[in-house]
């Protein structure tokens, strides 16, 4: 019972307070990835050869990056982008 209450409070108070900050960090990582993969926007990255070394560590951001970038305007898709595909 106490455990459930603890979880409820965490969800209601803590997660809510940190989720915007977390989203900001994800957005910054997306920005980093976009700088590396600028060819996706049609701007070749002259240092791409040295940047591929970073991709294994950023792989989770790689999925759905294009969709998130393309759909920035739509709030729903942005949210689903942050939550991830079902």
């Amino acid at each position: 019972m106490l455990k459930a209450l603890k979880l409820f409070l965490k969800g209601a108070l803590l997660d809510q307070s940190t989720e915007k900050i977390e989203a900001k960090s994800k957005e910054l990582n997306d920005r980093l990835l976009l700088l590396i993969l600028s060819h996706k926007l049609g701007v070749p990255n002259p240092f791409f050869y040295h940047c591929v070394e970073l991709l294994p560590y950023l792989s989770e951001n790689l999925k759905g990056l294009e969709r998130r970038i393309l759909d920035r305007k739509s709030l729903i898709s942005r949210l689903t982008g942050e939550i991830g595909e079902p």
Binding site: T18, E19, I21, K24, S25, L28, L32, L35
Partner: peptide, 14 residues
């Protein structure tokens, strides 16, 4: 950019 991202991640992870 990466340092900034880590900073926010740090702040959100209590």
């Amino acid at each position: 950019v990466r340092e900034e991202a880590l900073k926010y991640e740090f702040l959100s992870n209590l």
